[in-house]
Design a binder for these strands. Structure first.
Lengths: 211, 211
DNA sequence: ATATGTGAAAGTTTTCACAGCA
DNA sequence: TGCTGTGAAAACTTTCACATAT
């Protein structure tokens, strides 16, 4: 096993592999080759072998990978073999969808508190969560052992939401708001921006298909 | 101007630049240097210059870029200087959030029809859209000149939704469902998967910070 | 004087090809 | 035999450094 920095692209693909392996586990497929997993993920098979090599040796030569073992090992290495308590900041349309999103909770990302700064929303109950004033973030963060913050505010309030989270001691943030947010060293922020993905798509559709 | 294939990472960053430039336009900043834009996007300045070079020469040496001109040029090159008619397939929690998402419409991605295969939902009106039976996709696609499909179904129905869209003649799809979907040559599909982003985040938080 | 545009260098990621092992 | 794990090659992306233009 190597101890080299794992590239971000590798981690992203790993999430894909986990998804594919979960499907195989459900279909009771016991063993899969790198070729088979590659086909399921639309990826090159040596890519998969290289990616896995960052974490260890999981395969059996001449055979392939035992689906269940590989899945377990990957979950452990990725840090998703446990529950992560998350705080949602911003309970608008998207925030409500996130609160009701079964998939997230199933995969161990549990939203345990929902915050908003709109006094008309505070106290309202959405999907069994009472909306809490953003000022109480720090206090609630300690009480519920929150580790991840999800920002789903309008863009102009995203930076403030991030500041609140960071001040409360949250180290990892995922930002759904279409805004660029600055964070100090040591804080990780990842972006999920729908319109960025749509721009990429629009561009691909606009460019004449090369032949 | 070069005529070389534009890398996907470049297009993704372009969406970021557009966002930053929009902010500058609003603040009435007239001119910006690659350095200035770089700072706003947390990117290297020569990266920006290289990215822009794929599309043309927009700057003035010794001065910088005229914000409004650059924004206009970028929008045109990216194909987002117009309206794209989109179809939503799957009106669950996420689908409803997308229908109500102002940002998307503002940026020219207009959801003009919402489909679902649940007979209890068909006919219901969400955000001024009457939910239509998925079987009518082809017919409605022609009528409303739909070019982009958005899949927001449960994962097990994502492939079927994609098939419907492709059969109707849609060439570009954005998939919000946590499922891998196969599409034939010539169809573009992009993924937006929250849990993938959360996995990346969980991994970064799990790995001891290197020093 | 200042900041772009771009070749060339450095760094990273992907793919190939095959040695090594069940 | 069949498939993994991995060095080496190819492809691609980022950064540097400076000639070039205003």
């Amino acid at each position: 096993m190597k101890t080299k920095r794992v590239p971000k692209v590798t981690v992203q693909r790993m999430a894909l592999y986990v998804q594919a392996l979960e499907g195989m586990l459900q279909k009771e497929i016991k063993v899969v080759s790198s070729e088979g997993l590659a086909a399921a993920c639309n990826v090159n098979s040596s890519q998969i072998r290289k990616d896995l090599a960052y974490f260890g040796e999981f395969g059996v030569r001449g055979v392939g990978y035992y689906v269940s073992d590989l899945l377990g090992a990957m979950r452990a290495y990725l840090g998703i073999d446990r529950v992560w308590n998350c705080a949602l900041v911003g309970v608008g349309n998207l925030g409500r969808a996130l609160l009701r999103h079964e998939q997230l909770a199933q995969r161990g990302f549990r939203i345990v508190a929902a915050f908003d700064c709109d006094p008309f929303k505070i106290g309202e109950v959405v999907a069994e969560h009472e909306i809490i004033c953003t000022r109480r973030l720090k206090e609630v963060k300690e009480e519920l052992a929150i580790e991840i913050g999800m920002i789903a505010t309008p863009p102009e309030r995203a930076q403030r939401a991030a500041n609140h989270l960071i001040e409360a001691g949250v180290k990892g943030i995922i930002n759904f708001a279409p805004a660029i947010v600055s964070v100090p060293e040591g804080i990780t922020i990842d972006y999920v921006d729908f319109s960025h993905s749509l721009v990429t798509l629009a561009f691909q559709l606009s460019v004449p298909p090369e032949d």
